[in-house]
Design a protein around this nucleic acid. Structure first.
Length: 904
RNA sequence: GGGCGAAUAGCUCAGUUGGUUAGAGCGCUUCCCUUACAAGGAAGAGGUCUGAGGUUCGAAUCCUCAUUCGCCCACCA
């Protein structure tokens, strides 16, 4: 990429991201930098949680994709062929709703168009608007391999869906059955249990009488003994029995009585079932097998008839005469009124309860008896449980493992058919002559058994998640055994929100194990939900959302990325407000200005190539200190990323740059740059360049644009740029080098900072004008520190604006050479020997002793055969992990000790 | 009804297997437009770490109980 003339580097004093971001993104993309090559090295793979084609980028996406991009850019720099597979989800119901709404504006319904035309219409919509979110992901800086972009209804994935279906069908894991399912009367389709979440509503519990036959007259009369309680009176039209608990003695006398349904005067059965809770309501329950899951179970058990009383749109059907044609809630009102009129109504009570709602349109879902396709989940779940036991998948934070296991252990069969038109049509054909169903990967035109041509494909489509659960391998070419699939599967990490652990994560694991015989990913990172600062879930419909794109145009993608990562503690929900993003905006500007300052002082300095650093021994304490601090940051960032602690990594980057590099190192470099000592200038220039260049590489995964912009400008300061990668994107990730850590330099620097802080504090307290030079006395606690702090004489005088500085120990009297002017306010600053080097050394020795002792204990325990065989596996493994951890710590401590001794 | 998370500075939150003086951002107070940055610099105030017990040489951290929020799961009609 282009070389920059240092003379031309007159940069504006405020960072403006606009000019920078689009330029670099299109360059990266056009140079193919997001597309990894398959090599011998182990790859690093992430598949994107495919956003809905109807989606527009919200803060949740911003967080989710920033995290993935950080991981991918980090691993790419670390040398792995890093693949991030992007794509979108066809989002069956959601997309169909959008297009139906559009039709409604033209006063049309999908039925006016017919299935074929309607699906064409949705495709047209997809072509026009479906790439919105994909463009927006680019704005965020997501370094996806767009050459591998997929859509859950593209040709390849449709083929994968059919293969998966047929395979499960042939293995007997897919079946069709009459069941009570969740039915959305507005979308007019079945929903899976996960798609019908319970929401608490303020409802009512209605009490009323049923009828029995008067033994004398034979007439149907109100039975004083029979009162039931229900929240949905309208379902009584489908009642076929009353039920009590077998242990409930109160209702013994009801046995043998002829019981009738009010309003319709239909005869009902009387049953006993343990499902009934005697304590709820009156202990008598109306049984409606066609409209309640529990009642359905009882109905099967007691061979009751089931009467469906609702049309698919939740209007009462012919079985519910005389209420036929009424909407379910209207029917409820009328039925209650009629019960009152007949004197059967007893009372109503307020009743808070939870009712399932459609997750797309929030309509109250109706339990509805219908014929649907199901996947038998038990066998799939067993494999997933086993994989978890073998620790082939890890959740971060760990606590989600439990949530996931609980779901697997209580798994229900998955209703996969939907009565909508947009989606993968179920690949089953029914033969008109022999009536048999056939599942097939290719379209059937004649019956495989009777060869008749009267075939009809099942009209339903599959649940959207039936295509997304194949995503980690279908996007890589499955069912074909492609080179991509061989190389990149299983993927490395999945980053997603907690809301879709069941919908998606768990099912992907099951599908991966079933179809690929291998887990789809090793690590699952579950991040929090983005909320407003008052705790509401951020959503467009609530009107409380911060639009990430607007924010990007104001402060830039880098600032957004950095803020959101810094503000989101690992796995916790993020409470955001617009002001909070100033954090990142200010930081980008700080980096920009620090770079400006560096450029103007480096002037015509040239290092041979990046990574050049003068010999450590020849460097002063300040230089060794900043290099040492940088090493700490490298280690912290690396460790934090490996543990999915992104906010830790971000704060390490933030703190180092702002409070070490800018506040101290750059300030201390000023006297050097403004002075005349040429060798000193050379050294400081070299160190400054080294630190800046290394830091930009560390920063790149978090702030890709700014890092690239500044890194490219650094090219001007090297003589050999041939060896420099074209883009920071492919530059090497900084590696931790223990030999660059200098505990003594950090210690001495700490002394200096303490002295300067003390003087500044006194200055402020005594109201001495900042520009006024003063004389100060620094008193140190330990005579051994006298010489150490004396080395900083010039620096302290510079940063604390002193005219003169005396350093004394506690035992000396105060010096007499202070001028008369300041006699009355002579400044005393006491520098506590934070710890003396000797004390620090002693501390390390003690720690080594402690750790060694612990290690001995552990080794002893782990060599005990009894312990190994008896203790739970987890405990043993934990102890082993602790052992390696402690060994690492011991190594570090010993290195540190060696350092102390080498410096003395 | 089960399960999970949270309670730390005025606000929003960090605090990684228990360890010197509990941190950050924002806000606040004082001073400073000092030749990178006022989107900045220097200094400062502000904390009985929700409460009560317990374990320990040592607890914000571990255990028990309580209180208050939030989330998830479940067939209470």
């Amino acid at each position: 990429m282009n070389q920059t003339d240092p003379a031309a580097q007159e940069l504006p004093s405020a960072y403006s991201p606009k000019a920078v971001e689009d330029k670099w993104y299109s360059l990266w993309e056009s140079c193919g930098l997001f597309t990894p090559q398959r090599t011998d090295a182990p790859p690093y793979t992430i598949v994107i949680p495919p956003p809905n084609v109807t989606g527009i980028l919200h803060m949740g996406h911003a967080l989710n994709n920033t995290i993935q991009d950080i991981l991918i850019r980090w691993k790419r720099m670390a040398g792995a062929p890093a693949l991030w597979v992007p794509g979108t989800d066809h989002a069956g119901i959601a997309t169909q709703n959008v297009v139906e709404k559009k039709l409604a504006r033209e006063k049309k319904t999908r039925f006016d168009l017919g299935r074929e035309k309607f699906v064409e219409e949705v495709w047209r919509w997809k072509k026009e608007y479906g790439s919105t979110i994909v463009r927006q992901l680019r704005k965020l800086g997501s370094s996806c391999d767009w050459s591998r972009e997929r859509f859950t209804m593209d040709e390849g994935l449709s083929r994968a869906v059919r293969h998966a279906f047929v395979r499960l069908y042939e293995d007997g894991l897919i079946y069709q059955g009459h069941r009570i399912i969740n039915w959305c009367p507005r979308c007019q389709t079945a929903l899976s249990d996960e798609e019908a979440p319970y929401q608490e509503v303020e409802g009512k519990l209605y009490y009323y009488h049923y009828l029995s036959k008067d033994p004398a007259t034979g007439a149907l009369v109100k039975d004083e003994k029979i009162i039931i309680a229900t929240t949905r009176p309208e379902t009584m039209l489908g009642d076929t029995a009353l039920a009590v608990n077998p242990k409930d003695r109160r209702y013994k006398k009801l046995e043998g009585k002829e019981i009738y349904l009010p309003l319709q005067d239909r005869r009902l059965a009387f049953i006993k079932d343990p499902l009934i809770d005697p304590k709820f309501g009156t202990g008598i329950v109306k049984v409606t097998p066609a409209h309640d899951p529990n009642d359905f179970v009882m109905g099967e058990r007691h061979r009751l008839a089931s009467i469906n009383v609702l049309h698919p749109d939740a209007r009462v059907n012919e079985n519910g005469a005389p209420y036929q044609g009424l909407d379910r809630f209207e029917a409820r009102k009328r039925i209650l009124a009629d019960l009152k009129e007949k004197g059967l109504f007893v009372k109503e009570e307020p009743h808070r309860h939870k009712v399932p709602h459609c997750y797309r349109c929030h309509t109250v879902v109706e339990p509805y008896l219908s014929k649907q396709w199901f996947v038998r989940m038990k066998p799939l779940a067993e494999k997933a449980l086993q994989a978890q036991e073998e620790k082939r998948i890890r959740f971060y934070p760990q606590r989600w493992t439990k949530v996931y296991l609980h779901w697997l252990n209580n798994i229900q069969d998955w209703c996969i058919s939907r009565q909508i038109w947009w989606g993968h049509q179920i690949p089953v054909w029914f033969c008109g002559s022999c009536q048999k169903p056939y599942a097939s990967v290719t379209d059937l035109t004649s019956c495989p058994s009777c060869h008749g041509a009267d075939l009809k494909q099942d009209p339903d489509v599959l649940d959207t998640w039936f295509s997304s659960w194949l995503w980690p391998f279908s996007t890589l070419g499955w069912p074909d055994d492609t080179a991509d699939l061989k190389y990149f599967y299983p993927t490395s990490a999945l980053a997603t929100a907690q809301e879709i652990i069941f919908f998606w994560v768990a099912r992907m694991i099951m599908a991966g194990l079933y179809f690929m015989k291998e887990v789809p990913f090793r690590d699952v990172y579950i991040h929090g939900t983005v909320r407003t600062d008052s705790g509401q879930k951020m959503s467009k419909s609530l009107g409380n959302a911060i639009d990430p794109l607007e924010l990007i145009s104001e402060i830039g993608a880098d600032a957004l990325r950095f803020s959101i990562v810094m503000l989101t503690a690992s796995g916790q929900d993020a409470y955001l407000s617009k002001e909070k993003f100033e954090l990142g905006r200010n930081f980008t500007n700080k980096i920009w200005n620090a770079a400006r300052f560096s450029f103007s002082n480096l002037k015509d300095f040239r290092a041979l190539q990046p990574g050049f650093l003068p010999p450590l021994k020849g460097l002063g304490v300040v230089d060794r200190w900043i290099v040492s601090r940088l090493e700490h940051v490298i280690r912290e960032v690396d460790g934090a990323l490996a543990a999915y602690r992104f906010n830790d990594a971000a704060s390490a980057l933030y703190h180092f740059f702002w409070h070490d590099f800018c506040d101290w190192y750059l300030e201390l470099s000023k006297p050097v740059f403004y002075g005349e000592d040429r060798p000193a200038k050379e050294k400081t220039s070299a160190v400054l360049l080294f630190v800046l260049e290394t830091y930009l590489r560390l920063l790149h995964p978090f702030m890709p644009f700014l890092a690239e912009e500044l890194w490219q400008k650094l090219r001007a300061y090297y003589r050999d740029t041939q060896s420099m990668p074209e883009s920071i994107l492919t530059a090497a990730w900084p590696g931790f080098e223990r030999k660059k850590v200098s505990a003594p330099a950090e210690f001495e620097m700490g002394l200096m900072q303490q002295a300067i802080g003390g003087i500044r504090d006194l200055r402020a307290k005594l109201n001495i004008p900042p520009a006024k030079p003063i004389e100060a006395v620094v008193r140190v606690a330990d005579p051994g520190l006298l010489e150490k702090i004396g080395r900083f004489d010039a620096a302290i005088r510079h940063l604390a604006r002193l005219e003169s500085l005396s350093i004394v120990t506690e035992f000396e009297r105060r010096p007499t050479h202070l001028s008369n002017v300041f006699k009355e306010m002579e400044i005393f600053v006491r520098v506590e020997g934070v710890v003396d080097l000797a004390a620090e050394r002693a501390r390390i020795l003690k720690k080594i002793e402690e750790v060694s002792k612990l290690l001995d204990q552990l080794a002893h325990r782990l060599s005990n055969a009894d312990f190994i065989s008896r203790a739970p596996e987890e405990v043993v493994e934990k102890e082993r992990a602790r052992q390696t951890e402690l060994q690492k710590i011991l190594g570090d401590l010993k290195d540190n000790l060696a350092l102390f001794e080498s410096v003395r």
